[in-house]
Design a protein around this nucleic acid. Sequence first.
DNA 1: ATATATAAGTGTTTAAAATACACTTTTTTT
DNA 2: AAAAAAAGTGTATTTTAAACACTTATATAT
Lengths: 230, 230
Amino acid sequence: MILSTYNKEDKVLLAVDCIIFGFLKDELKILLVQRDFEPEKGKWSLIGGFLKKEENLDKAAIRILHHLTGLKNIYMEQVYTFSKVDRDPAERTISVAYYALIDIATHDEKILKQNPIQWFNLKNAPKLIFDHNRMVEKAIARLRRRALSKPIGFELLPDKFTMRQLQKLYEAILDSKLDKRNFINKFNSFDILIKLDEKDMSSSKKGAYLFKFDQEKYNRKVEDGFNFKI
Amino acid sequence: MILSTYNKEDKVLLAVDCIIFGFLKDELKILLVQRDFEPEKGKWSLIGGFLKKEENLDKAAIRILHHLTGLKNIYMEQVYTFSKVDRDPAERTISVAYYALIDIATHDEKILKQNPIQWFNLKNAPKLIFDHNRMVEKAIARLRRRALSKPIGFELLPDKFTMRQLQKLYEAILDSKLDKRNFINKFNSFDILIKLDEKDMSSSKKGAYLFKFDQEKYNRKVEDGFNFKI
DNA sequence: ATATATAAGTGTTTAAAATACACTTTTTTT
DNA sequence: AAAAAAAGTGTATTTTAAACACTTATATAT
């Protein structure tokens, strides 16, 4: 903001691309769309759209996610703005990447009605158009950091979950094995989970107790200076 | 990128605003400019400019910083993109914030010839225009996190510095007192500093040994898996 | 020349946190 | 009744972080 008028400045297209993470059967997943227009028609792409004059970027990200998946009230966070001059061969476009966290188990039907979008395991997702693979890498790095210092993992899990599911989620996010006893001990020391009487019987004969995240207790603890740190 | 043509999409002005940090006399400082055009003429502002069609954002940030300070080869990092609809009352403008780290002691003369820019102590900087204060907050948070995991602090110090200066820098960035012995012990355990025979006599009768950051050694150690962690 | 003032420099002890590690319980299936 | 499969549970060890106080060097004042 140096010039005395903005009139002669270049204007650009501003896109929002969403890296949508999900978690199912011990695997981190990503939601992709098959592009149905040129350039790069038919290739796999992040879900994206353009910022409109009357909305801010957060709103645009929410709108774009909702438009393609039907989902609302989804955790999203801005990651980075990508601006290589020729990143989109059709026209100069700057793109702001947002990541979103979705509990697939709860929302899957809704999503899969929509086409042509599809979940891929993060580890064997296809090559994406433009710089979208770089966007995904940045988003993973951000998700990883965030998961260590905020309880955002719960956004990826159903309301009720077993300790083993929670552990597998963190293993998937951090891409490393964790010790069962140490993990449970640490999480219990936070004292932000509610143990239910209910058991999940789907993964063993014995059954595993279900837990809920106690959002209010967490909020109170944070106010009192509690610092979530895996 | 959902529509079959980009033609009807809104275009916007894309600004870059720079949060320029410096360090002098045990204090973190920020470089501000007095705005010489409307709106908000005469108020203090971050140094900024608009993205041009033929450059990416990193290049724009470098150009804008260089234009107002004459400095090149400065450490910069993108922080966040601000997009509130009415953030600039003159016209819809989205702004990408970058922070920069400057060694004031070495570059000060060059900078201060330029006008009307001025260093302020971070702690008593004036109120800024638009959402620039929020930008500064975000940049400080980022600088703090970064300084804990990367040796970027050296960007703010002269080539040669004393251990006390280094400690005071970290105290300023983290906004907390550190124990002299623990700090030195930890830093020495990293083994990335070169102790010179030279002493700085400006702050005591005894004099304090000067050190240099060993960039090559640091790079080698990082390749071998070393992880800088304050 | 002696005393004083000022910052530099230096290790050890204690506390806290992270890590490593293995057996028992429950229940279904054979 | 035995086998199989996942759930559940506690302690000892190692590593890291934190707390802590005196000696050294030298310029300046007396």
